[in-house]
Amino acid sequence: MPGNFGRPQALTSNPFHYCPGCSHGIVHRLVAEVIDELGIGGRTVGVASVGCSVFSYNYFNVDMVQASHGRAPAVATGLKRSPAAPVVFTYQGDGDLAAIGTGETIHAAARGENITVIFINNANFGMTGGQMAPTTLPGQVTTTTPEGRNTAESGYPLRVCEMLSTVEGVAFLTRVTVHKPAMVLKARAAVKKAFQVQLAGGGFSLVEVLATCPTNWGQTPVDALRWLEENMIPAYPLGEFRSWEAS
């Protein structure tokens, strides 16, 4: 358990470009810590999506592939099915995974593709300036829902874990947050299990991480944590939607 703290080997020395207080930085560290702990850095390939985390190929100190918007699970499939068959993870935001990439997400899950998806849900398109995403909450103000998301016009949030829990190919599916130290530890355990599922050839694993976006939510980093607790968690219940035990 975290006695000492330092920069994981699976992170490069590049400083993050993320906004102050953004959860991406925490999740990057967790993924890197897990890669170090499992000793798989040398045979892991990460797939960066398009969004705030598009630059993650500058941060994860492993072979990286930058995928077009929404297609990371398909790129990951190609990587995993190649003769090299590395350990493969994708790192995607909610715009990438739950909007344009919904098809790729569902079908990679349906195929039981033996990859690990790290899915950051911060209820908006961050990189492009805070637009509504499929995960934006009813009434939530974004740059494309200036009066607050009106479900009569733009519908309801997509609950990805609940949706994917109906798909047989999924081996491990959980939703966590990183808005408190204890939750960060739980999120780290979830990421570790997801990679362990893949290492055991168990099939498709996905960890959804509720995350803050102080800049586009228009809040201080600390207030954003509170907003997440009071609004995101009720809308996106935490917990495992498909559990997995090493057989």
Binding site: P2, G3, N4, G25, I26
Partner: peptide
């Protein structure tokens, strides 16, 4: 050395070294 700060730091800017490998976290 409980590590709460390091757990929450989005920039991996906090380093904690315990003199010997004692379990620090009491959260």
């Amino acid at each position: 050395g409980c590590g709460a700060c390091a757990l929450m730091c989005p920039e991996v800017a906090i380093e904690i070294i315990h003199p010997e490998e004692t379990r620090g976290l009491a959260v």
